[in-house]
Nucleic acid binder design. Structure first.
Lengths: 291, 291
DNA sequence: TGCCAGACTGTAGAAAATCTACTGGATACG
DNA sequence: CGTATCCAGTAGATTTTCTACAGTCTGGCA
């Protein structure tokens, strides 16, 4: 078997034989394979030559299989069917699309819209992977990512801007009850400030010093704290839109600061686009960007 | 299915994947396939690219199959096994060798030596086809032929002289009982002459006229008539050697006439010689030629 | 009968796929 | 740390494959 693996006939010639045997006509087989009649005839001739026997009888009008050809065709067809089925299964596998996002994007942007995604693309099984950083599309079997990045992008990546980091200062309405909004800088500094690992307060307040206040390693945690009335958090507008609309948070100043880098939808360019990935990509591009 | 036949991945890439998956090492797979490591890696990369998913995890030291790779490998291996088995069956088929000869050669030369052939090559199953003319090696699935022909031969044919047409006049000893051998031309003309379709008597006797006597459409029939004492036949020495040695026939004159064309062993040149055919060819070349 | 259409064969040159030969990066092992 | 052994990636060479076209053969048709 190992032996015969090495002496397998040219596979493309086998494919030509299989098609020709099914159609009993080189021209039809050629059409099916997308080549010319001569190419198929040549391949089959080479195969017969290598095997040292005729697979077809050449009739004046078409082909007929020899006894050898008939039995060989049955086996070869079976093998190609196996390959076709296996490949089909591989490609038609449950349309799982894996999206890799930061924890904050997951909590604040993606998860709230999952129901909508499911309604729009019911056949797609989305796997959400929340990690701080994406190491490798292939290794992690990730189809699409949302990442904080900036151009230029490597040629093998496709990237589309989702939203910029438009920072707004927000707090629970309970925290600022009795104060007039927007707050002045003076008033703001008196409130507890909540920090995430990006520490954008210094940018917004143009402060050189380290500002006091609780620190969280994920923006989403700082936001949770803000929702709980524990302070004012500076967050990307995209992450708080829903909470603002629902009145769970309020903007405490009118200032905004847009800083880089930006949130991009990213994927690897592939020569064989998967429909499900395309669909999720398109959905993300429209629904995850700010209106 | 017809659909997926068209979208089958590149077959050579599948073969590279199969070997790599078995060995879990591109270099080993490359060696098995007789190419370089780069070639295999390239093929596998192209396959993964087309399928749009990773089949292998590239580890620092070798490869590991992904989940997709594992299940795909099983199916692809199965398909290649099918092909290998089918091809093996086709090539290891009972070693039938077909030899096409004229009826006379069959009766007088080949069949008397079949036992010897079987003793020399017991694993070979010889199929003897006796026909007046050979139309087509391929069409008739003929491996070797013995034919009356003359050079030059087409480049795709291999030919080897077996024996020339050395005509001798023979008769049953009963027919010439009482006569002194060799006969004179005079005496010869008084005996019944047996004719086959070649009608060589006119050559030997330098006769312009049509000579009288029974006519047979095969030399072998004329010889049978001679054996039965019905006349004198002019036949190729090669066809009567055994009967002469056994005393069933005697030469009635000492004259011989060698005429063209000659008997040649002929076969089609093939890029994939079959051992059994080679063996029969060699046997014929030595055993069927005159000593 | 003569001729055309449609089938395959065979071949030379063009086009494409594949391979080789490297360079380079990563990791395990002593 | 240096060495050996993986795999990745690339450019150019090589080989394979395809196309285009000329030939041959045969059946059907006027």
């Amino acid at each position: 078997m190992t032996q015969s693996r090495r002496t397998l006939p040219p596979l493309n010639a086998l494919r030509a034989f299989e098609a020709s045997g099914r159609r009993l006509n080189f021209r039809a087989a050629a059409e099916e394979l997308g080549v010319t009649q001569g190419a198929v005839a040549q391949q089959v001739r080479a195969l017969e030559d290598q095997l040292g026997l005729r697979l077809f009888l050449r009739l004046s009008r078409g082909l007929a299989l020899t006894a050898y050809g008939t039995s060989y065709l049955a086996d070869v067809s079976r093998a190609f069917d196996t390959l076709a089925e296996a490949t089909g299964r591989l490609l038609d596998r449950p349309e799982t699309v894996t999206i890799s996002v930061t924890p904050t994007v997951a909590t604040k942007v993606l998860i709230p819209r999952l129901a909508e995604l499911y309604a729009a693309l019911p056949d797609i099984d989305l796997r959400t992977v929340a990690t701080e950083a994406l190491s490798d599309f292939d290794r992690d079997q990730v189809d699409i990512a949302v990442r904080l990045t900036r151009p230029p992008f490597p040629a093998n990546l496709q990237a589309q801007l989702l939203f910029r980091q438009e920072l707004v200062a927000v707090a629970s309405p309970h925290l600022v009850k009795g104060l007039t909004l927007p707050l002045t800088g003076e008033e703001l500094r008196k409130l507890p400030l909540l920090h995430d690992s990006h520490d954008h307060w210094r940018v917004l307040l143009q402060s050189r010093e380290k500002l006091p206040g609780a620190t969280f390693n994920h923006t989403t945690l700082a936001l949770d704290a803000a929702l709980a009335g524990q302070g004012v958090v500076l967050a990307c507008r995209a992450f708080v839109t829903a909470d603002l609309e629902a009145g769970r948070l309020v903007r405490v100043t009118e200032e905004t600061a847009t800083i880089g880098p930006d949130y991009f939808l990213v994927r690897k360019r592939s020569s064989s686009p998967r429909k499900a990935v395309d669909a999720v990509w398109d959905w993300c591009a429209t629904r995850l960007s700010l209106p």
